[in-house]
Design a protein around this nucleic acid. Sequence first.
DNA 1: CTGTTAGCGCTTTCAC
DNA 2: GTGAAAGCGCTAACAG
Lengths: 339, 339
Amino acid sequence: MKKAPTTIKDIARILNISTSTVSRALNGQADINPTTKKEVLALVEKLEYEPNHIALSLKQRKTHIVGVIIPETENQFYAKTISGIQEIATEYGYNVMICQSHESHEIEKNSVQMLVSSQVDGLIVALSTETKNYEHFAKIYQKEFPIVFFDRICEAFDTPKIIADNYDGSLKATEHLIDVGCKRIAHIAGPQNLFDCHQRLKGYLAALKKHHLPIDEDLIIYSNFRKENVREYTSTLLDLPTPPDAIMAINDATAIEMMHIIKERKFKIPDDIAIIGFNNDYVSGYVDPPLTSIEFQALEIGRQAASMLMKELANESFSTGKKLVKSQLIIRKSSLKKH
Amino acid sequence: MKKAPTTIKDIARILNISTSTVSRALNGQADINPTTKKEVLALVEKLEYEPNHIALSLKQRKTHIVGVIIPETENQFYAKTISGIQEIATEYGYNVMICQSHESHEIEKNSVQMLVSSQVDGLIVALSTETKNYEHFAKIYQKEFPIVFFDRICEAFDTPKIIADNYDGSLKATEHLIDVGCKRIAHIAGPQNLFDCHQRLKGYLAALKKHHLPIDEDLIIYSNFRKENVREYTSTLLDLPTPPDAIMAINDATAIEMMHIIKERKFKIPDDIAIIGFNNDYVSGYVDPPLTSIEFQALEIGRQAASMLMKELANESFSTGKKLVKSQLIIRKSSLKKH
DNA sequence: CTGTTAGCGCTTTCAC
DNA sequence: GTGAAAGCGCTAACAG
């Protein structure tokens, strides 16, 4: 169906020169007769010749493609992250191939394999919720395949890792709630195998400890990101003999849903219950009451992850530590309890 | 840095057989000695051999990659669309390479060129806002390069086109507003070079006409998707001698922002001004008041676009008409004016 | 059942 | 300044 594209060979044949000459005309550096060069360039223009990246890749054993594996594009955070990655990759002449794990370990594994088979030059990864076993990465890590983890990182390997400062964000948020007078702060904790979720719980606990507040296990809910459970655990919290006077939700989307349920149950936000989300989604300023949230610099995290990989691919540098990207508490009405 | 991967040649050398035999062992069909086959497979396993897609692509002149160009991954609609595309592509053994135009004609043009150079087998495209000239597509269309447009389609070419039924959605939404007694319905119209925005305006006008309501040019705002302008045009509308009694926003995000501004100005929603968004974002049910919105089946649109392309690539079928995917009006409080 | 050969589109020595 | 030849990893037509 598709017409065969023009190749370097076509150009050579028409001009009665060799393919090497055409190649040289195209690439510059080498000695070449300016006249020949002009002729080639003219024909290239006319025939709309486009170099075949595949052939180049095979030859150079470098595709200039980086593979990206993220949980979901629908997640604003990862969507932004992708933009940051693409921005930097483009700058370095790289393309990006994106796979979504949809939080499945199996799909993640297949994606790694497929991307490696596709000869991507490196991988940028945020782990799926399900992933507790890292063999699929170990395999390529051993072969010194360049990998950068971000956000949902894997600590088992000495690779660059870029993370939002969830610990600090969570700590600050908890302290803010304590500041406004909250004493029973509930924390909806995500899956603890995920680095970021674990850090948030740690930040929360650290804040309680620092301010000499007791840890009440009833106020810590271990959940996942599925929306199905929100109503259930929200009820559980509200039905406690002494309900919480503040809640840190797992993200803004569920915070907003929780607010809805809390209002149904006739609790006042923030006076009865203050609430804080994570991620600072674009709508959070417009819900009622406007939602306090912790903002992570998704774009910047993407950029940094890509930068790390680009530098590694260029053999420029290789850092294996965790790099923290600052998070910021955006205070709005939902947490401003009078006291 | 990276260790050289195992090739078919390595396997052949170790087993003292030819590469063709290895290839045959791997690919099945041809006659091959079961013992040889077993040996090969065992070694493949042991050496963690992965076929090199690049070599295959060069050989077969088919990469099994489809290129996707969308405005923004941050846009929920396109994010979902991507998932639909990937779902079907994966099913057919294809991979997906995603580019964002960020609404820039220039970037879109470069992306087309880059994807074609990368030898993608086909293209799935939603145009950028800026794109008013289609030469970059004309060039490859002439060469019979398979393209499918969706959502922001280009009518100039006989390619498959998948669109959400914006006309019908907009018509129904407008009629709903008329039903609840609105007489001065404002329509925030997107860039009219974009097919979907144009359809929406047409649906709106058709509904007014059908119900014998006058068309007031003051109530039609021509805008773009940038949030910077929301406050300005909302004020323009509210400052009219007779402000509108209903507003159809350009999407849910801006509808939510408009609601915020409208409430600041002490208008009641929906009694003074009813409001409807487009896209039915996940939060729309949780804002105050919950937002009526038109839902498009983004996932389904992505799936259909990918299906069309896959079928074309398999030479199975080739349809060039526009395919409409149904939209649905989700009625919530923001439009339920008492009357 | 298996090996040999050629070639996908391109670059890059090595000659001339 | 240019051409011939080899090769990137793989498959497929053709022998045998």
